[in-house]
C-alpha cells in the first residue's frame, strides 16, 4: 500500500515537472539548431542586417524585426484603448447579468483559430483597405500604390486577436480592486466616472499593464493571420500601407522549402523571437505577481 502510493506520488511529480522539461527542451533545441548560423554570420550582422535574401546567403533580419514591430505597435494602438474601454464597461457599467454574456462573447473571440482570422483579413480587410482606405491616402499622396496587403491590415486583425487577452485580464484586475477603495471615493462625493478614472484604474494599473504586455506577446508571436495579410515583403516599411514580412510569417512560409543553411537561419530567427517573447512573458509574470501582492 505504502510503496504503491509512493510510486503514484513520483509519477504525479514527474507530470508536474513535464512543463518545465518541455520549456528546457524547447530552449535547447531551438538554440542548438539556430546558433551555428548566428555564430557564423555574427549576431549583430544578423539582427541589424538590412537584407533578408536567404537564396543569396544574406540573413539580415532588420526588415523582419521592423515588420513585426510595425504590426504589433499598430495592433496595440487600436487594441489598448478598445480593450481597456471594454474592460471598464464590463466591470463597472454593464449590469452583472449582461457582463457575463459579454464575457462569453469575448471568450468566443479568443477561441476562433488564427488561420480563420487570417482568412477573414484576406477576404474582407485587405480588399477594404485597397478600396476605401487607399483612396483617402491618395488625396495626400497621389503617387502611392498599394494592394491592401499591409501593416494596417495586419494591425487591424492582430488588434482583434489581442482584445480577449487585454479585456479579460484588465477586467479581472479592475474587479479585484477592494470595494473599500471605491466606497471611500464615492463617500467623498466623487461620482462614478471620477471614481473609475482616479481610483479604480490606478489601483488596477499593474494588472492592466500585464494584460498589455501579454497582448503584445501574443501579437508578436502570432503567425497564420499575419502570414495571410501582410504581404510578406522583407523590406523596412515606409508607411502603414506598405507590405511587410514578420519574424513568425517568414519562418512559417520558408520552412517548407528551405535548404539546410536557410533552415538554420530560420531557427536563428526563432531564437530572436523566443528571446523577445520570453522577456515579455517574464515581465508580465512579475507585474502580475505585483498585482497579487497589492490586492490581497
Amino acid at each position: 500500500m505504502k510503496t504503491y502510493e509512493k510510486v503514484i506520488e513520483k509519477i504525479i511529480m514527474i507530470s508536474a515537472v513535464m512543463s518545465t522539461i518541455s520549456v528546457a527542451l524547447i530552449t535547447v533545441f531551438i538554440f542548438q539548431s539556430g546558433l551555428p548560423v548566428l555564430a557564423e554570420y555574427g549576431v549583430l550582422d544578423f539582427i541589424f542586417g538590412t537584407t533578408w535574401s536567404p537564396t543569396n546567403g544574406s540573413y539580415g533580419i532588420l526588415p523582419l524585426i521592423a515588420g513585426t514591430l510595425a504590426v504589433t505597435l499598430g495592433a496595440l494602438v487600436i487594441g489598448i484603448p478598445t480593450g481597456i474601454a471594454c474592460a471598464i464597461f464590463l466591470s463597472e457599467i454593464l449590469p452583472k447579468k449582461w457582463a457575463k454574456a459579454f464575457k462569453s462573447a469575448i471568450e468566443l473571440l479568443a477561441g476562433i483559430p488564427s488561420v480563420v482570422y487570417g482568412f477573414f483579413g484576406l477576404v474582407v480587410i485587405v480588399p477594404a483597405i485597397r478600396n476605401y482606405v487607399l483612396p483617402i491616402y491618395q488625396i495626400f499622396d497621389p503617387d502611392i500604390s498599394a494592394t491592401g496587403f499591409s501593416i494596417l491590415a495586419g494591425a487591424v486583425i492582430l488588434a482583434i486577436m489581442i482584445l480577449p487577452t487585454i479585456v479579460s485580464i484588465s477586467e479581472n484586475s479592475i474587479t479585484a480592486v477592494p470595494r473599500e477603495f471605491k466606497e471611500a471615493s464615492l463617500a467623498l462625493g466623487a461620482n462614478k466616472m471620477e471614481t473609475i478614472v482616479k481610483v479604480l484604474i490606478p489601483a488596477a494599473s499593474s494588472g492592466i499593464l500585464s494584460s498589455i504586455i501579454l497582448g503584445m506577446g501574443r501579437a508578436i508571436g502570432e503567425t497564420m493571420a499575419v502570414l495571410l495579410i501582410t504581404g510578406n515583403m522583407a523590406k523596412v516599411p515606409g508607411s502603414i500601407m506598405d507590405p511587410v514580412a514578420t519574424l513568425t510569417g517568414t519562418i512559417a512560409m520558408e520552412m517548407g522549402y528551405a535548404s539546410p543553411t536557410h533552415q538554420q537561419a530560420l531557427f536563428a530567427v526563432g531564437i530572436i523571437l523566443f528571446v523577445i517573447i520570453m522577456l515579455l512573458n517574464i515581465i508580465a509574470q512579475f507585474s502580475m505577481r505585483g498585482l497579487g501582492g497589492k490586492t490581497n
Binding site: 512543463s19 518545465t20 518541455s22 520549456v23 527542451l25 524547447i26 533545441f29 531551438i30 542548438q32 539548431s33 488564427s114 501579454l214 506577446g217 501574443r218 508578436i220 508571436g221 502570432e222 503567425t223 513568425t248 519562418i251 512559417a252 520552412m255 530560420l266 531557427f267 526563432g270 523571437l273 523566443f274 517573447i277 520570453m278 515579455l280 512573458n281 517574464i282 508580465a284 509574470q285
Partner: peptide, 18 residues
C-alpha cells in the same frame, strides 16, 4: 508552466520539427 503557455505556436512548430 506559465512560460510554456506563453510560447507562440511557431516556436512549438520549430521545436516539434527539430
Amino acid at each position: 508552466t506559465e512560460i510554456l503557455a506563453g510560447i507562440p505556436s511557431i516556436i512549438f512548430g520549430l521545436f516539434g520539427f527539430a
